[in-house]
Design a protein around this nucleic acid. Structure first.
Ligand SMILES: [Zn+2]
Ligand SMILES: [Zn+2]
Ligand SMILES: [Zn+2]
Ligand SMILES: [Zn+2]
Lengths: 132, 132
DNA sequence: GGTTGACCTGTTACGTTATTACCTCCATGC
DNA sequence: GCATGGAGGTAATAACGTAACAGGTCAACC
């Protein structure tokens, strides 16, 4: 864990939401680090490899892992209204899927499970979202 | 269903694999249709909305649906070696996930399930893949 | 001490993917 | 005729991502 990487993780943690690589990069450069894309992508890729952050395919974005300590099988709930992302663990689901795939001869190495919908705050009778 | 949209679907069907929007666009323009990105993206978005095609988030690509007739809950098996994509139905998985999400107050509207790994052809003792 | 090699960071330049904005055409309904 | 709205064409640009190279640090090894 180096300064850039640590700072990158802090940025993700502070934001409490998914951030694009370029958003992270802007913060990093404000803090005196490099201002070119590879700086952010390298740090983010490292964090993802280490299980300290996750990549959200549907958003082209990254978010800090909420339980980096334990080995887990994350699934994501992405609110289309307020853009907030909830990380949840779905080990049973993943095991089941892995098995289904195995029946077809497919070896699953990485599994992406991402749901888009409405979070509790945004789904309770209003569609506008709580952007805060 | 209009000419561009129909042709777009044909292109996806003919290729038997996932295609990037720009690949589709190139074929469309060869056939005398527009050669600017929105032409392809609009047609592809339409097909996805209608359930005639799917979008593969991990590949930034699109593929024709293999069973567009029935309402289904697709999951994808993406081979990292030969890039082939298999579409499979996972209704149980999705129902279970929907329920898990509901417990947390989240309303799932769209669910992405994509696995990356090795297909039967590429996993049987070799890692090189059958690119054909 | 000097050299080597691994690893990290910075930068240039570029490639790929996706969207915004604006315009034309044409079918529909009045 | 004339609005209306969907569809497609085009230009321009935004957003996302990577390859390739240059320098710097540090520990290992001779
Ligand atoms: Zn996590
Ligand atoms: Zn919300
Ligand atoms: Zn399908
Ligand atoms: Zn394969």
């Amino acid at each position: 864990m180096t300064p850039v990487r640590r700072r990158t993780l802090e940025i993700l943690l502070e934001s409490h939401r998914a951030m694009g690589a370029y958003d992270v990069l802007e913060r990093l450069s404000q803090d005196g680090y490099g201002n070119q894309p590879p700086v952010a992508y390298r740090a983010l890729d490292f964090l993802v490899e280490q299980g300290l952050a996750h990549r959200l395919q549907r958003l082209n974005a990254f978010a800090a892992c909420l339980s980096p300590d334990r080995d887990h099988a994350p699934a994501f709930l992405i609110c289309r209204s307020c853009d907030r992302v909830a990380e949840t663990d779905a080990p049973v689901l993943r095991a089941a899927f892995r098995e289904t795939a195995a029946e077809r001869g497919f070896k699953v190495e990485r599994l992406t499970v991402e749901a888009v919908g409405l979070c509790p705050a945004c789904g309770d009778g209003d569609d506008t979202g709580a952007d805060a």
